[in-house]
Amino acid sequence: MDTAITEVRSSTESTGDVDVSVVIPCLNEAAGIASVVAEAQAGLRAAGLDGEVIVVDNASDDDSAALAREAGATVVTEGRRGYGSAYLAGLASVRGRYIVMVDADGTYPLDRIGEFVDRLRSGADMVLGSRFKGTIEPGAMPWPNRYVGNPLLTGMLNLLFRSSVSDAHCGLRAVRREVLPELQLSATGMEFASEMVIKAGKRRMRIEEVPTGYRVRIGQSKLARFSDAWRHVRFMLVYSPAFLFVLPGGVAAGAGLVGLIVLGAMRHLSDNWTGVSVAFAMLTILGLGIIQLGLFARTYAVIYLGEHDVRLEHGWRRFRLEHGLALSCVTLLVGAAITFASFFDGIKDPRLGILGLALVAVAFQGAFASFFLSILGLSEHAILRRGRA
C-alpha cells in the first residue's frame, strides 16, 4: 500500500497539469476517508491515469484531515461548512484536465473512474453516475429517498430545465476543468449538485451518464432529508422564472382580466357583483406584477450572473424603452376612456369603471417596469462583449 500511494503522489508533485483530479469533500468522515482515498488511487492506477486526490476538509471535528493526508491525499481546508462550499474550494485547487467528484462516505465504487474520463475525452462536458441504472445495495438508500425523494427531485429538474438525466443528485460525477468558468458555480449547500446539472443544461453542454453502484455508507449520515430536499426545490424554482413567475402570473392576470371584461359587459347583473370585480382587478394587477418580477429576475441573471437566454437578448434588440412607454400610453388611454364611459352607462354597479381603473393601474405599472428594464439594459454592451469573446 505504501508503494502504491507513493506512485500516485509522485505524479502530482510536478508543477504541470495532471490527467485527473479526484475531489472528495469531507466532514467528519474519519471512519472511511482513508479507504476512499485508497480506492480513488487504485481507480486511477487501474485506468492508467496520471492523477491527484484532493480531500477538502470542511471544518471536521475528528481526524479526517490527518487520515486523508496519511493516505496520500492533498488536503485543502474550507472553514465554511457546506457541501457546495467544500466543492468550490476543491475545484479551485485542482490541476487535472478532468475532474472526478465523489463523496467521502464510501458509498460509490471507484473502479470505473476510467470510464468517466473516457466519456469526457470523447466529448462529454459532464458525466453523471446513475445509481438507478446501476446496482443499489440493500440498505444503502432509505426507501423514501429511493422511491420518492430522488425520483421527484430528478423529475422536477428534468421538467423545468428539459434535462434527461436519471439521477441528478448522484454523488459520483465528472466534469472537464475547462468548462468550470462557464458554469460559474456558486451554491454552498447540497443544492450544488442541482446547480451543476441545471447550469450545464442551460448552456447546452453535453451530459452523459454511467451506471454506478451504491453501497451502504461508512460512518454516520450527514443528510437532513427534508431541509436538503427543500434546498434543491428552492434552487430549481429560483432558476426557473418561467415556472415560478411567468406561469402563475400569466394564469392570474389572464383570469382576472377575462373576469373583469365579462362582468363589465354583462349589464343586467345585480348590484352585488362589485366585490367580485374588485377581486378580479386585484388578480389582474397581482398577476402582471408577478410576471414583471420574473422578467426582472431573468434579466438580472443574464446580465450579472452569466446566464444565457437567446429570446431575452433578442428581445432587447427589438424592443426599447419607447416601445414599452407607447404600449403603456395606449393602455392608459383605453382605461381612462372606459372609466369615463362608466359614468354614463346607467348602471349603479361600478363594474365597468373597475375594469377601466385596473387598466390605468396596469398602464402605470408597465411604464415603470419599462424604465426599470431600461436601467438594467444599460449593461447590455457587457452581454455583447461576452458573446464576441
Rank of each mutant, 00 (worst) to 15 (best):
I5L: 06
E7K: 14
V8R: 07
R9W: 04
D17N: 13
D19Q: 11
V22P: 07
V22M: 08
P25W: 13
P25I: 15
P25F: 12
C26D: 05
E29G: 14
A30S: 13
A30C: 02
A30D: 01
S35D: 13
Q41G: 12
A42K: 10
R45T: 06
A46T: 14
A47T: 05
G51R: 09
N58G: 03
A59V: 04
A66C: 05
G72Q: 03
G72I: 08
A73M: 11
A73C: 13
V75I: 07
T77S: 13
G79Y: 05
R80H: 14
A86Q: 07
Y87C: 03
R95A: 09
R95Q: 12
R97P: 02
D105Q: 09
R112I: 04
E115P: 03
D118S: 15
R121P: 03
R121F: 05
G123H: 06
D125W: 06
M126Y: 11
G129Q: 00
G134Q: 04
T135E: 11
G139I: 09
G139C: 10
A140E: 05
W143P: 11
R146G: 01
Y147E: 10
N150I: 15
N150E: 12
P151H: 09
L153F: 00
T154E: 00
T154H: 02
M156A: 14
L157Q: 10
L157G: 08
N158Y: 02
L159S: 05
L160G: 00
F161Y: 08
S164G: 10
G171E: 09
G171L: 12
R173D: 00
A174Y: 01
R176E: 03
R176W: 03
R177C: 10
V179E: 05
L180V: 12
P181L: 05
L185Q: 11
M190R: 08
E191L: 03
E191V: 06
F192E: 08
F192Q: 06
S194T: 04
V197D: 00
K199L: 09
R206P: 00
E209A: 08
V210W: 02
G213D: 06
R215S: 12
R215Q: 14
Q220A: 14
Q220W: 03
A224D: 09
R225N: 12
R225K: 08
S227R: 12
H232P: 00
R234N: 14
P241Q: 08
F243P: 00
F245A: 10
V251G: 02
L257R: 01
V262Q: 09
A265T: 13
N272W: 06
S277C: 12
A279N: 03
F280E: 01
T284S: 12
Q292L: 12
Q292V: 13
F296N: 09
F296M: 13
A297G: 01
A301W: 03
E313M: 11
W316Q: 00
R318N: 10
G324L: 09
L325A: 11
A326K: 04
S328Y: 07
S328A: 15
A336I: 04
I338M: 05
T339I: 02
T339C: 07
A341Q: 10
A341S: 12
S342A: 14
I347W: 02
D349W: 00
P350A: 13
R351G: 05
L352S: 01
L357G: 07
L359F: 08
A367E: 07
S370D: 04
F372R: 14
L376E: 06
L376W: 06
L384R: 15
R386Y: 02
G387N: 12
